[in-house]
């Protein structure tokens, strides 16, 4: 098999995940796109490891070992990420990452979206918005 096939598929999957991370608004959909990017990396690692283990005489199988590590780290990442998303959803009433703007830069003091109102009021407004 040509190495170009898995490499191209991996690049395309990575860019699909990149689009998802940049364009999605729900935090859980962003986590799904991150999973897509991690899987693209895994496919690349496996393909290059199979190629090198056949081309070289002695091999450490480092690609497959790193793939297993990546899978385990991705499982840990999805667990922690979902716990954070659930905590944010419980405190703010939303998992919409466009509305979580408390740490954004506030260069325009007249902008009503940023800091015209105090933080408590915006929290209450977000909770009321979530219950509506």
């Amino acid at each position: 098999m040509h190495l170009a096939y898995p490499a191209v598929l991996s690049a395309l999957l990575f860019c699909t995940g990149l689009y998802g991370v940049l364009a999605r608004r729900n935090a859980i959909l962003v986590l799904m796109s991150v999973e897509l990017m991690l899987n693209a990396v895994n496919l690349n690692l496996v393909a290059f490891d199979v190629w090198l283990s056949k081309a070289a005489r002695e091999t450490l199988h480092s690609g497959q070992a790193l793939t297993l590590f990546t899978i385990a780290i991705a499982a840990a990442e999805i667990g922690i990420g979902l716990a954070i998303v659930l905590a944010v959803h419980r405190n703010r009433g939303t998992s919409d990452i466009d509305k979580l703007r408390d740490t954004s830069e506030r260069h325009d003091p007249d902008d009503p979206d940023h800091d015209a109102r105090p933080a408590e009021q915006s929290d209450e407004a977000q909770k009321a918005e979530a219950t509506a």
């Binding site: 098999m1 190495l3 490499a7 191209v8 860019c15 990149l18």
Partner: peptide
């Protein structure tokens, strides 16, 4: 986001195909 992703895909596929078009995996 679509522009960024398409640009990244074009660059990556071009580089990868250019680098590995003669590499053969013996299965």
């Amino acid at each position: 986001a679509l522009a960024v992703a398409v640009a990244a895909a074009a660059a990556l596929v071009w580089v990868v195909v250019d680098a590995f078009r003669t590499t053969w995996i013996d299965l």
